[in-house]
């Protein structure tokens, strides 16, 4: 018994003393990789830069800047589809970034297909959702949550008129912030957008090469991913066109690795 207690205490102290150092070591390695990737990009070694950013992302660093830089590197290699894919992923993490929005807009201009997404009523009403990340909305909700309960706490002891109004206002803001957070969460969980990666792909009537070609799509076009079957993906367009495409030709913007939970856990 005593032994186990001693062991636990020892582990606790080790974690307390050496834990931060281990994390710091990892961070230092990541920083080194990041800067070397940046250097490779500047020297025109875009594939090397892509490998570096990719490694950073796969190691769990879901930073919007990594996706942004990765998108830039793919753009330089004329891989418009992958560039837009990574810009879109970066946008999930830092939607308000001006550089990102500029580059994404420029890349979209280079796409060949005229596919426009119509805005729904929720997006128009909660117009700020597209400019705020889930993490930012969570932070807003946290601050308003604190203010809300503090106002009600004050109201509990001091029943003045001003405390009444402060409570009501904080309640309204709390509801708006909470709803915004919930909607953003829902949007991210139901976001089934995918990006066409190849220069030109045939969209077929069925998951077979012998099926009829329904239409063609080009790199960078955003489609809605529905499901996959035997190496084929069923995609659709906002105008209700649907068809099957080879799974490797299209990639969803949000995967399990960068879904809303992952975004929150990594502190997006």
């Amino acid at each position: 018994m005593k032994r186990s207690i001693c062991l636990s205490i020892a582990i606790f102290f080790m974690v307390c003393f050496f834990g931060p150092d281990i994390i710091a070591l990892q961070t230092s390695e990541s920083e080194e990789l990041f800067f070397s990737s940046n250097q490779a990009y500047r020297q025109g070694h875009f594939q090397e830069a892509i490998d570096g950013y990719d490694q950073l992302i796969r190691s769990g660093h879901k930073d919007g800047n990594f996706y942004y830089n990765l998108g830039n590197a793919y753009f330089r290699l004329d891989q418009l589809g992958r560039a837009i894919l990574n810009y879109e992923r970066a946008r999930l993490l830092m939607p308000g970034d001006a550089d990102l929005n500029f580059n994404l807009s420029y890349a979209r201009d280079k796409t060949l297909d005229d596919v426009s997404e119509s805005q729904d009523l929720v997006s128009m009403t909660f117009f700020w959702l597209k400019d705020l990340s889930l993490g930012e909305l969570l932070l807003c909700f946290a601050i308003l949550n604190f203010l809300f309960w503090t106002a009600f706490l004050i109201r509990l002891f001091f029943k003045f008129e001003w405390t009444y109004y402060v409570s009501i206002i904080s309640l309204i803001l709390w509801i708006i912030a909470g709803t915004s957070f919930g909607l953003k969460w829902s949007q991210l969980n139901t976001d089934n957008r995918a990006v066409i990666l190849e220069q030109e792909v045939n969209i077929l009537a069925g998951p077979d090469m012998r099926d009829t070609v329904l239409f063609k799509l080009h790199a960078g076009t955003i489609v809605h991913y529905e499901r996959s079957e035997d190496g084929w993906s069923l995609v659709s367009l906002p105008d209700k066109k649907r068809g099957w495409v080879k799974a490797g030709s299209v990639e969803p913007v949000i995967t399990e690795a960068n879904g809303s939970l992952a975004l929150l856990k990594t502190g997006a």
Binding site: F34, Y41, G135, A142, I143, N145, G267
Partner: peptide, 30 residues
Amino acid sequence: HDILPIHASIKDIGKGSLIRPGGLVFWFVF
């Protein structure tokens, strides 16, 4: 016309945001 350059400096690589679900600050704040 061209794209804008890469982001070369990133604050606190590896650190997540202050508020994360399940974290101490999250529980404290919410």
